[in-house]
Design a protein around this nucleic acid. Structure first.
Lengths: 342, 342
DNA sequence: TTGAAAGCGCTAACAA
DNA sequence: TTGTTAGCGCTTTCAA
């Protein structure tokens, strides 16, 4: 690879000192130089194909203009839109993101944070934290700007951007209620994730408001937000003998698993059992009978998270809201049947 | 953010020179030091919470241990598995990847390459090149290790890892033929992408071998590999009046669009028209009637691409195969109907 | 308005 | 086996 041209090369070529070249090429410092010198330097820089070496500049300035973007898994379709949302503001601002997949594994998460730290990221957007996540709290307290998106860490001051879980779940449960359902089961998300916890609490609270009968067996908690757990929990529901006409799932993938388990049991959705999801991941409209779900603003979650992070990175004294809650909406499809209240 | 501890700090603490510390912490150079000194340094480094500053080291060594990973769009479900495949070898080898989305836009691609270059990536994996891509060829010729995956750049020596397009298309066309189809339309991919071109050529060649009648109208070329183009091309096929019982689509998204257009025209797949795809993206099994498609080894494409790149980056004299072709397989689902040959 | 000089944290050639 | 020295490419303070 032929040698990149450096400031020194341009200095030699133009007969000025490298610091002058540096200033000429810096939009801010440029003002203190002669128009003519600036022009001469800029044109020879261009002619020589100069590209700044960000490494060197970062070493001096202590800013890498890069951030870490931690997600559970890029193959999980919930996250790419969040990533694009974040990058929609990061990229124009000159930041590059290093995306890492935690695979929802604490050891991996810890290792990856170290990687990001070594790389000198200016901040971190964490879309995959655990509800209890002392390591991230420590990193944040050491002074690294950090925001969590989609999920939150408990007992921490780390700003977060999340969707309105209580509102969304309440909306969905009321929707089922309005459609005549009185015996509604819930497949809850993992207890160690903020979304899992927030949703089950909202479910219980709303069920109470609605005076719904809620036997213990109608509430099963998944260990992961995935299809396999959705199947397992649905089977458990079915085998428990508890009576229900609908299952409110804590996310779409659990619901997809429920579709599957129902089918395996010879049950039809929505004719025998209604099912609802949460998140609004892609392709749902194409999968019969069409999952009725809560659409969260994935792109905006990423976008606003990045905006907050940039604010934190550039103005340490800025006031950042501890929690930013984004509105959700209910998307009606075919997985809920209207029935006569039992 | 409190100050990171540096080699100098450890040197002061242990009473040796920073170069000694550097050596003690370097697995390779470590051998030339006293066991005891190494141990002392390593333990105080640990105690002080030392983290190497990769920036500084990179500035010296001219290696950033980072690579650029260019994809069209992370929201396109074809690519996340490729990314994971690449990272499955990059990460253990100590490399970090900077993922950029070109949005299949040449201007963006050019800008993003510059970003990667400024960041000093040691190499690039390009999963989104155009068939004709002089900019990337130039970058590669300047000496930056590069491999393209999934697609190829024409007239270049850049190594690529691709699936067996000719084999896959031939397999699929023969499959349709065996199922009695004699009038088969093709929705081809964009002509400016290697996959688009390879597949249409394979289609024509195989059609000829099979002595299929192939009127011009039965062959329509899409501008993008997406659902909307799939719909448009299908409509065009339908409106052309040409006779066909099956559509072989150059990729899954085009096929999904075809499903849709067919439905809009009151036609049923596979009862009226059979449809096939290519790639084997996720969720296809859940979307009725189940797209029969060619499964490409996405993960392996990424994995092998990364392996080749690492070889190029670490051993400039290594012999790298110009093209690595990975096998594909046909996945039979419900979108093809067996009919009596017309 | 420009130049000189120092230094970011690290590595590596050379000396001792 | 360890220390000295120089320098990667850049920014920035201080001087001129």
């Amino acid at each position: 690879m032929n040698k990149p041209v450096t400031l020194k090369d341009i200095a030699r070529e133009t007969g000025v000192h490298v610091s002058t070249v540096s200033r000429a090429l810096d939009p801010n410092a440029r003002t203190s130089l002669t128009r003519e010198v600036v022009e001469r330097i800029r044109s020879t820089a261009e002619r020589m194909g100069y590209r700044p070496n960000r490494l060197a500049s970062s070493l001096r300035t202590k800013r890498t203009m890069s951030i870490g973007l931690m997600i559970p898994d890029i193959e999980n379709t919930l996250f790419p839109p969040i990533v694009r949302g974040a990058e929609s503001v990061l990229e124009p601002a000159g930041y590059t993101s290093i995306i890492v997949n935690t695979d929802s594994d604490r050891k991996r998460e810890a290792k990856l944070v170290d990687v990001l730290l070594e790389r000198g990221v200016d901040g971190i957007i964490h879309a995959a934290p655990y509800l209890s996540d002392p390591r991230m709290i420590e990193v944040a307290r050491r002074g690294l700007p950090m925001v969590t998106v989609n999920r939150q860490i408990e007992n921490s001051e780390i700003p977060s951007v999340v969707n309105d879980d209580p509102g969304g779940i309440a909306m969905m449960l009321r929707y089922l209620h309005e459609h005549g359902h009185r015996h509604i089961a819930h497949i809850a998300g993992p207890k160690n994730l903020s979304t899992g916890r927030a949703r089950i609490e909202a479910f219980k609270a709303t069920a109470k408001e609605l005076h719904l009968d809620l036997p213990d067996e109608a509430l099963v908690v998944s260990n992961y937000f995935d299809e396999q757990e959705g199947r397992r929990c649905t089977r458990q529901l079915l085998e428990s003998g508890t009576e229900f006409t609908a299952i409110l799932c804590a996310n779409d993938r659990l619901a997809l698993g429920a579709f599957d388990a129902l089918r395996q049991h010879g049950l039809s959705c929505p004719d025998d059992i209604s099912v609802t999801g949460y998140n609004g991941i892609p392709f749902l409209d194409l999968i019969p009978p069409g999952l009725t779900t809560i659409q969260i603003p994935q792109f905006d979650i990423g976008r606003i998270g990045a905006e907050l992070l940039i604010k934190m990175m550039t103005d340490p004294d800025a006031t950042i809201p501890r929690t930013t809650i984004l509105p959700v909406k209910l998307v009606e499809r075919g997985s809920v049947k209207r029935i006569d209240p039992a």
